[in-house]
Write a protein that binds this DNA or RNA. Sequence first.
RNA 1: GGGUUCGUAGCCUAGCCUGGUAGGGCGAUGGUCUCCAAAACCAUCGAUCGUCGGUUCAAAUCCGAUCGGGCCCA
Length: 370
Amino acid sequence: MSADDFIVTPWHVEGDIDYDKLIKQFGTEKISSELLERIKRITGEDHFMLRRGIFFSHREMNRILDEYEKGNKFFLYTGRGPSGHTHIGHLVPWMFAKWLQEKFDVNMYFQLTDDEKFFSKPNLTLEETSKFAYENALDFIALGFKPEKTKIIINTKNIQTLYPIAAQVAKKINFSNTKATFGFTNDTNIGMIFYTSLQSAPCFIEDKPVLIPLGVDQDPHFRLTRDIAQKIGKQKPALIHNIMIPSLEGPGGKMSASAENGTIYTTDSPAEVKKKINKHAFSGGQPDIEQHRKIGGNPDIDVSYQYLRIFFEPDDNKLKKIYEDYKSGKLLSGELKAILIEKINEFLAIHQENREKAKNQIQQFLLENK
RNA sequence: GGGUUCGUAGCCUAGCCUGGUAGGGCGAUGGUCUCCAAAACCAUCGAUCGUCGGUUCAAAUCCGAUCGGGCCCA
């Protein structure tokens, strides 16, 4: 544990994250009210994830908007390390990316880093990460991206396209840089050491500015990318970061795809969702009903409330009422959980239907090797 | 290629020197308590000790081989 009591790296997130401190640590910029206004003005909409600070930090978002207003379109890029099934935390940046695609009418690239998960997870085989890549792709497609403007990159399948770009990048990043950025040591396999250049590659797949919406834990890769972009005659990627989605079991750390009980998967049945929330969601309620009525709950640490805020209740008025009722003690933890369960299951019913359909659509989304 | 070190339940690990078929922690599961969850407490599940062979009445423990991981040197 660091002196700040939290750790945020691409492979490990732990502790109660202080996002203001993280902005300083990483050297990013906080999303200001001016920037929020600007995005709202251009898109004509005030996205709840921006308004609520789910996306809280960025790098050079203003440059992207400057170019856009001059008529120079950018493109979007995000991804996923396929180490397991998709959970609802993964959906946050994807949903937001989909909104950006709609509002700005831009191309989107989605990278599935099956090689990286193979490198970083001792027990995963390449067959397994490829299988999860397919499963994760279905969830991505199910969110409604436009097939004519969206390409899915699978590292091991599209290496032919990625490699010439990755090679450009790799030549400019030395061992000392990656060691310092990722904390690599002598027992790190060389796949990991090279890997960041592959995650950089999609940034330069089109000769346009790129905007990357992503979990803030992935920022270190793109710090390196930004460092070397000019050296290879390219523009620095711009980024917009979302907070880590808490595990059901507590506010510290992010939802991990490996801890079954702390995680709602997109493939969970309504009964599983109900059970997981009721049995595992950390609450901000009081020890008993009398005290809860009297003192009230704490929505800020209540995971069920946080899920509503982050993802499942976009309506500010409804969310505000839940917040106030919970805080006043009018709403019990069990009742709050019931609201969340219904919201999740409503969402998943539609999502799972779209996910089935995605099986027939996936072919048109896959990137062709150049 | 040489050297060295490690391999015990999902994870971490005790035991190995001084042979007698494994003990703990985390996790998981169930229960008590809570409107829930957490915490606390109680209980349960879970390991043929990397593999093969040898010595022995008896091997996780000794010996040999082999596979796999780590580090150092080349």
